[in-house]
Amino acid sequence: MMRLLRVIRAQLRASLALALQYRLEFLVEGLLALLWMAVTLVPLLVVFGARGTVAGWSFAEMLVVLGWFVALKGVLEGTLSPSLMQVVEHVRKGTLDFVLLKPADAQLLVSLSKIEPWRVIDFAGAAVIFTYAFRQIGHAPSAADLLLSAALLLAAVLVLYSIAILVVSIAFVAVRVDNLLYLFQSVFDVARWPSSVFRGALAMIFTYVLPLALMTTYPALALLGKLNARTALGALLGAFVFAGLARLIWLSSIRRYTSASS
């Protein structure tokens, strides 16, 4: 376990040093993260400029969903996407073997191989959004709600991570997987709205097929104290099953890769 942490720390340090090499880019990317946060907020402001509630959600409640969205987008674009792009590159250049040869878990190495440190701004932004939202609501979330929503956040990150791992597993079979990742990133944009905005078939898809509801809507509901225990438990369970499945598929595709490339 300690070794695992050391590996993670070393990877983070390397990524940070790499990111700092590019001075201009560092500044620009930091500002960019802020800009994109503003871009995410503008539509919400405009929509609620016209309406008091939308699909049963007030402005403040919708902000909570958006807060989770911003935070998770930070996770996705700050660690998962760049790392996975790295894998795609490895597979294309045939240098993945170097990664597989290292005496640490390949999935771990692969999924943290590159981070973009300026994405920390996303978390700060999410915190600001939460603070503002609960000021508007008038009371802070209870400790129990906080705990539940933290648990659900964990589930959300796990699902996000698993989807990314699944995408990479495909990389071993079909090479141009960067596009799939890109597609997923853009589909993830749907998670900026609570799932109840959607109706009919779309609502079903975003809850069960691509569990976007689990990523932002459920943690938000939990924080607002509106999520019932059964849904929460179901979501957590679902997330772990999903992660286990992704791990299995990862292992089997690694095996196939190593046996095929020898």
């Binding site: 040093a17 700092l20 090499q21």
Partner: peptide, 16 residues
């Protein structure tokens, strides 16, 4: 000039 290491990288943010 780029020097290795985190500290040097941070320093180069200010002075290159």
């Amino acid at each position: 000039r780029r020097e290795p290491g985190l500290k040097a990288a941070l320093r180069s943010l200010l002075h290159r």
